[in-house]
Design a protein around this nucleic acid. Structure first.
Lengths: 289, 289
DNA sequence: ACTTGCTGATGCCCTTCAGGTATCAGCAAG
DNA sequence: CTTGCTGATACCTGAAGGGCATCAGCAAGT
């Protein structure tokens, strides 16, 4: 059977994301005719039409949508193979741990301290990423292990260990009427006049509908809240990055958030095992806040 | 960054498995010099030595072992992308369900019947594979969903739903002294003179040490047990394939076996969801035996 | 209706590089 | 010192990926 080459997958992903051969070719650094031919050949080899060409661009067929998803996963796996192999060559390579910037500060702190005193401690390097990007880092080999949050993050396909369960708080600009309350409900937080809830990327990378601003970094958020443009509901421990002009109020009926440590099952190594063991030792210890 | 091509990964896997450039080249249908050059180039691009060449063949380095594992996963992902995309083109494509030949007969039977009467039932095609191969089928796209057994099968990276929990029985040749007992313990079953326990492939594909024969199909096993060459401990429901000259005796302290339905998180589709829902409806119903 | 300005598709040429054949080079065992 | 393995080199060839120029369809101005 004729196997696909990663080049073909990269080409298709570019076109599927741009929905435009010219721009995709540009992004890939090749000429448009070459791209058109490559995609045609790919369609022919798979025996399936992937794109509906149209006067004003291209649109994905059902099969195209399947391939977009699968190709992404496959390319991540290939990238992971390269990265992990390169790193296997280094002696004294540190373990890469990825987490959302600004989340779970203190838990992470304690984890690193605890692990440093473990007998078989390997050095750990912390990588910060944007919201929802941890899974990507694990999948493509940029990280060996991640700190993630259920139910917000995509844990599919990873082994995990629960570390900590906590409630959520609403983060409001100081001076807002609701900021004086000592607790809130989700119903009260929704539809606050002039204070729409910020919209985060969902598991599939799209944004939910709504009036609030689209954000994907903590600093954007902090800014927007301070400016009185939005409010948000976040895990209680995240108020570590709270600004002076922010006020956190517990939201009593918000779903609980579980902080977990996650790793790709294929990438299980003694170093990862050791770190996970250190993490398990932190179980249920409330963070100082 | 220079991405790897699947061709290079296939070449490396062949060499890593054969540990011999000539044989690997033969298997790939290319000449040995081309292979040598491809591997050298791969090593150079990764900046890591993958193989220790030696007068009598090649041996994997640590990095090589990492790449062997990662490349396998990556190639499976690429193959899955191709297969799932092709199948997405077919209308009326059946759902592919894979299970070990001979295991969980009746549960599967009931699942298929239950699902056939579901309102959104898609046709289901059953594929049988050898012991421990289900994960491979799910990973490379040959199957959409699998019936597997914890703790025997490798469930890492899949979403699962528990279907059924059962104890295990020892399968003995009729006429053996232990066959008259109405229950046994693991301690009694181990080290039965002249009846070593058969050795199954472990999660990593290697065989545990021991005196018993290496087997990987049910029919091999059935034969060996009937011949009085081995005994084995298996889930109670597997005695469906028991021969007339087999006797099953419960092993009271053997770990429980959970039959689960598993699917790759990436491959989640309405059809899979529907089948899983049907399966969940079977919960805890004891099979007739 | 004609033009304009987008889109992706074609035709033709060139360069690159994967792969084949022949041969070399190291080394262990006769 | 020869023989018979191994993998590595040298050199050539050919398929195919890629670039450039151009074509072809279609919608929206004018």
């Amino acid at each position: 059977m004729d196997d696909l080459e990663t080049r073909e997958l990269r080409y298709f992903v570019a076109v599927a994301e741009e929905l435009h051969f010219g721009r995709a070719a540009d992004r890939l650094g090749i000429a448009q005719p070459a791209l058109s031919r490559a995609i045609r050949q790919l369609e022919h080899r798979l025996g399936v039409q992937l794109l509906d060409r149209d006067r004003r661009g291209a649109a994905l067929t059902d099969a195209g949508r399947v391939l977009l998803r699968e190709a992404g996963a496959a390319l991540d796996a290939v990238a992971a193979a390269a990265r992990r192999t390169r790193r296997a060559g280094d002696e004294k390579r540190p373990l890469m741990l990825v987490t959302k910037a600004g989340a779970s500060h203190e838990l992470l702190q304690r984890l690193l301290v605890a692990h440093a005193s473990a007998p078989d401690a390997a050095p750990v390097e912390v990588v910060l990423c944007e919201v929802g990007e941890q899974a990507r880092f694990l999948r493509d080999g940029r990280a060996d292990v991640a700190i993630m949050h259920r139910p917000y993050d995509d844990l599919a396909g990873f082994d995990t260990e629960d570390l900590y369960v906590e409630g959520q708080v609403a983060l409001l600009p100081a001076g807002h009427p609701l900021a004086a309350r000592d607790q809130l409900t989700l119903a009260e937080v929704r539809d606050v006049p002039g204070l729409p809830i910020a919209r985060w990327p969902q598991l599939d990378g799209t944004y939910p509908d709504g009036p609030g601003p689209e954000v994907h970094t903590q600093s954007q958020l902090a800014q927007l809240v301070a400016l009185g443009k939005t409010l948000l509901v976040i895990p209680a421990s995240s108020r570590a990055w709270q600004w002076p002009d922010h006020v956190a109020v517990p939201v009593v009926d918000a779903p609980e958030v579980t902080t977990v440590i996650a790793w790709p099952p294929s990438g299980y190594s003694p170093a990862v095992a050791s770190l996970v063991r250190s993490a398990a030792g932190l179980h249920r210890v409330a963070p100082t806040s």
